[in-house]
Structures are given as structure tokens and as C-alpha cells.
Design a protein around this nucleic acid. Structure first.
Lengths: 182, 182
DNA sequence: GCCACTATATATCGCTTCGATATATCTGCA
DNA sequence: TGCAGATATATCGAAGCGATATATAGTGGC
């Protein structure tokens, strides 16, 4: 069998336990893994086909009235494939942070405007913090432990980042106090 | 003028100060912004053309022997465009972390193997820490302050992440001490 | 002087991913 | 009854990424 991509494992992970439609999977992704692994319809639907052909999931038609709806569940092979992947050491780690990029080039601006970038970044973090908090409230205690650990990790990281912005702002003000009054 | 993408500003940022070839820009990116904003040759060379057409940079041919070489420098318009972008609040923030993804689905594994994911993630962070340290050593004190602030931030973040992995491992061992001896 | 290897330099191709949108049906509720 | 919003599947174009092709320049070893 061909190598599966990570999005395939996102699907396997979400159809494990209970059957899901492509639409449901997309909604689950958008409220959870999307912060560290996004997936679009353009990936999900073709991937559901491939996984079905590979025998890792099976679909059943469960129409609602006259609207067709296919839910997929994981097969024994699929479970095994998922576990095998989970046992491999993770590779990919990527980030795209426009804030850090701007900060990196901030020497092109007068000092005061460089500080403004740090303030924007902090505000951005705080906004994300609220979104994650809302998700945390939504999920009860009922979940498997690991998704909650990851969510709490996201909250901690976001807080850490916001504080880093604050610290760097203070540090720059200390380093050039004569610019303060400008 | 059409909207520029972030890669265009990476180029503007790097040709500011001194003229650079496409090859040099790629090398600079790979040792700095690549950790939060990567760029490939496939983006850089076409972008150099677009920026030239837009009058934001100008190229001059500086051949070495019979090998052609074009270095680009920023124009006054380019400087202004860069500063205008730096003043906009940053938007994009994305992450793809295969480790967090695996951790999220770790309930599919026996507890001990879930802990193994955290150990791999920690090891991965420590490896990145060493790479960043090497870059820090390489750069002297001579730089503009902001690139160094961002680099040190990367080091701090990497350390924080490694410690988080450690803490989560300990927490899980505490929560299920009966599994410890398995 | 020659060879092998690496660095410099530009260019391009295929694949994946992203975001947006098209199409259609169902539900809630004013 | 109407219609906004949720459910469901599918697809397209643009952008990004990694790898590689092509070529020349420098460098170290023999």
C-alpha cells in the first residue's frame, strides 16, 4: 500500500470510536486539531475515498430524507494502521507566524513602532486564548484524556507567548529609556 | 499595485541594507526566518521578477567570471512598502505539529506508548534547541537587535515546549501510578 | 595539471494544501 | 410560508514546498 499522509490519520483518528460523515470530520477538525493540523474539504473527501479503497474505513449510506449522507467507520486494518503510525516518532513541525516575521524586520521601523508589533502580537495571542477557553468550556469532563491535555497545552502555550511579548516590550523600553517619551 | 504576499516582504527585508542575489536570500531565509516563515526557490525567483517590475527593487548584473549573477537592492518605494506592511497588525499564524497530532489521538494506544510520544516530542525539541544554539553562536553581537530577540524567543519557546512534554509525562505517570511498572 | 567535491546561481516541475465556492437538501422559527 | 442557517458532498484555482536540473566557480588532494 502507498504511504498515507497525515490527513489520512486525522480521519482515521476521528472515525475511530464512532462513524462520522466527511462534514462531521471537518467540523471536528475545525474545533480541535486545526490549531496544529488543519484539513480542508478538498483533502477530506478524496482521502475518504482512498481510505475506503485501501480497506481502512468502510462507508455506509445513511440518508436523511432524500439527502444522501455517508458515514465512515474504521476497520480492524484501519485501527492497526493508525496505531502503527502513532508509534512512529513524529517528524513534521512547521510554523508560519507573520508577527514573528514582522518583528524580525522591525529594525526598519522607528523603535516605538517596533514595540507596536509586540503589542499586536500580544493582543492576537489573547484573542486566541479566549477561543481556546471557549472550546475548553464546551467540552465537558467526558472526553478521552489526551485531547484535553493537548488543549490545555495550547492554552498554556498561548499564555506563555503573550507574556513573552510583554517581557520583550518591557526589555526594549528598559534598553532605550531615552526613547520612552517620544 | 497588486497585493504582495508575505514572501515578497521577506525579500524586501533581506535586500534592505545591502544588495543580495536570489541564492543569498534563500540561504539567509534557511538560517533565520525559515523557523517561522519558509521560502523556496520556486517562490523567491519569480517574486524577485515581480518586485522588479513593481519598482520595489532593482537588479544589477554582477557576473563572477562567466557565471551570471544578479543582485537586487531595495528602492525608496520598496522601503516605503516594507514599512507600510510592518505597520499593519499581523494576521497569519499557523502550525503543523505532527507530535501534537499524535498526542491528540494517543488514546488509541496503551498508556505506556502514549508516554512514548511525549518522549519523542521532547527529544525533537532538544534537537531543535541545539540547532538554534548553533545559529546563535554563529551570529556575533553585530546584528540589528530584533533578529536576535526573535532567535532568543525561539530558544525560550523550544525550552518551554520540552519542559511541557516532561511535565505532561510526569502528570500522566502520577495520574495512573498502577501502570508505572508495566 | 587533473579530478572530485562542494558552493554558487538560476530555473522549473509535480505534488500537496488552502480557501473559496457551487450545488442541494434539511431544520428551525418568525 | 418563507428564508436563514446548518448539513452534506464536490471541485477549482492559487499558492507553497521539496526536489531536482543545469551550469559554472572555487578548493583540496594527489
Amino acid at each position: 500500500m502507498e504511504q498515507l499522509n497525515a490527513t489520512a490519520y486525522v480521519i482515521l483518528g476521528f472515525v475511530r470510536g464512532e462513524p462520522r460523515s466527511g462534514y462531521e470530520i471537518k467540523a471536528l477538525v475545525d474545533n480541535s486539531t486545526r490549531f496544529f493540523w488543519a484539513a480542508s474539504y478538498g483533502q477530506i473527501y478524496p482521502e475518504l475515498k482512498r481510505l475506503t479503497e485501501a480497506g481502512l474505513i468502510v462507508g455506509s449510506d445513511v440518508p436523511t430524507g432524500s439527502r444522501k449522507r455517508t458515514v465512515y467507520e474504521i476497520t480492524a486494518d484501519g485501527e492497526e494502521e493508525l496505531r502503527a503510525w502513532l508509534r512512529q516518532p513524529p517528524q513534521t513541525f512547521e510554523m508560519r507566524d507573520e508577527g514573528l516575521l514582522k518583528l524580525f524586520f522591525a529594525d526598519a521601523l522607528p523603535r516605538e513602532e517596533g514595540l507596536e508589533i509586540l503589542r499586536s502580537m500580544k493582543a492576537q495571542r489573547l484573542a486566541i486564548y479566549e477561543r481556546l477557553r471557549a472550546i475548553e468550556q464546551m467540552k465537558g469532563e467526558l472526553e478521552d484524556p489526551f485531547p484535553m491535555i493537548v488543549l490545555r497545552g495550547g492554552l498554556e502555550f498561548t499564555q506563555w507567548f503573550a507574556q513573552w511579548c510583554e517581557r520583550m516590550e518591557a526589555q526594549l523600553l528598559d534598553a532605550a529609556p531615552e526613547k520612552r517619551s517620544k
